[in-house]
């Protein structure tokens, strides 16, 4: 019981860090800064999903984290490709 609570508290702390990264997403001067912030948010959200899946004791719900870890990589690659070819 106490283990699950500590996992949930750690996930809440990471959610606070996501708020800090959202600030950089809002004020970043160049689009590359915003892309870096989005990449950081992706990693944090994967960690949050794994922690919450353990805290809820539902193993089926952790598949979302796996799917998201792979799909966010595709999104990052897409943004990078647009950045290097679309800016001129």
């Amino acid at each position: 019981m106490i283990g699950e609570l500590s996992l949930a508290v750690a996930a809440a702390v990471l959610l606070g860090y996501v708020l800090v990264c959202t600030l950089r997403l809002a004020i970043g001067p160049t689009p590359a800064d915003r892309a870096v912030a989005l990449d950081t948010i992706n990693t944090l959200v994967v960690a949050i999903m794994v922690l919450l899946g353990a805290a809820l004791n539902l193993m089926i719900i952790m598949d979302v984290a796996l799917v998201y870890a792979l799909l966010s990589f595709v999104g990052t690659l897409y943004v990078a490709r647009y950045l290097q070819e679309g800016l001129r």
Partner: peptide, 26 residues
Amino acid sequence: RAVLALVFLLLTNPTGSHALARAAHR
């Protein structure tokens, strides 16, 4: 599932940041 998520993060995270850095430089 946790170990698989760990493997995916270790594979994709440096690759994604490398792609972003190269795109920013170009």
